[in-house]
Design a protein around this nucleic acid. Structure first.
Lengths: 114, 114
DNA sequence: CAAGCATATTCCATTTGAGACATATTACGC
DNA sequence: GCGTAATATGTCTCAAATGGAATATGCTTG
């Protein structure tokens, strides 16, 4: 049972997850979009399923895979303590830029919010 | 040149990064805190340094390693599109809880916002 | 400059995991 | 039930990366 981090270390698995953001996809659709041999797709999906990142429903002979919520939350939580590290930098940069270009306008809407 | 994701896939490297959140540390300090052979520490630090996650300054014979900002930002950006996936879930749960316990109080302050 | 400590590097053995291909399974239409 | 499409699994090989032990480098002090 590999860790969450090992799961997403594999580029093809990240690609598959990326596809599933849009909507659920069959194995064949993934295979075509990523131009990847079918056994490879199935194997990666197996790993993702075992790790709880995706789930499948049966539609005749196809299996439709979709993202499971929560799966990537663990990564987000691990990241949290580090986040303040770069936000300090970015905030300073933004203040700097704000002072530079249009000192009068109220531009530059919420960059990280929502 | 491994990807950001491969860098943080290694548990010991995550542990080292975790230590450096608190403050900069020498190799020896990391070695002792993580109970890890010194060459292992140096090797992982090498990888982290090459990947731009940490930087070192020289203090006599010791090298003090500290986090570089921005390094983990790439992970955060990759995570962004997925984030809305679980927030939908969490928000629903929060609304549910809010309805349950104190229906009158204005408690439960911003949980994810800074 | 010799000795000693802190860190880096090299070498080797082992393991892990992905890729490629062949093959098994399962469901459908006829 | 047969043939076929869609997906899963098994096997083999190979590359990469980790751990461990020995060794090299570098700085410092006496």
């Amino acid at each position: 049972m590999p860790s969450v981090f090992e799961i997403i270390a594999e580029p093809n698995r990240r690609a598959i997850l990326g596809l599933l953001i849009a909507s659920e996809q069959s194995v064949g659709e993934i295979e075509r979009q990523l131009r990847m041999p079918q056994p490879a797709v199935s194997k990666h999906l197996r790993v993702l399923r075992d790790a709880g990142f995706v789930e499948a429903s049966v539609d005749a002979q196809r299996r439709l895979y979709r993202l499971k919520p929560d799966s990537l939350q663990a990564v987000d939580e691990w990241l949290a303590p580090f986040r303040r590290f770069w936000t300090a930098q970015v905030d300073a940069l933004e203040r700097h830029l704000d002072r530079m270009d249009q000192p009068e306008e109220k531009k530059r809407p919420a960059r990280r919010g929502k």
